[in-house]
Amino acid sequence: MNPKKMAVAGTLESSDVMVRVRPSEVLSLEIKSPVLAQYGDAIRQTAAEVLAERGVTAAEIELIDRGALDCTIRARLETALERSLD
């Protein structure tokens, strides 16, 4: 389900990721990470999987990564998406 309002989850602490989700007409994903060159594709793949599982087709999503593991990226994105529906 697509976001109905802006929502944020996560922090800027080490090993975490802050995710910001906004309603949008199209699906866009912006990633900021110190390891973008090495892990950008993996982060994008993880985000795409979560978005597909939740049926998100239109949203503006920003990920500010601080070296988060895959499971943390999943959790923070799921939390932000859930919060954007309230």
Binding site: A9, G10, L69, D70, C71, T72, R74, A75, R76, E78, T79, E82, R83
Partner: peptide
């Protein structure tokens, strides 16, 4: 509380 629940669940599944 929601954030912690998602994070722990994800850690249990993937770590």
């Amino acid at each position: 509380k929601d954030s912690g629940r998602y994070l722990v669940s994800s850690a249990l599944r993937h770590l």
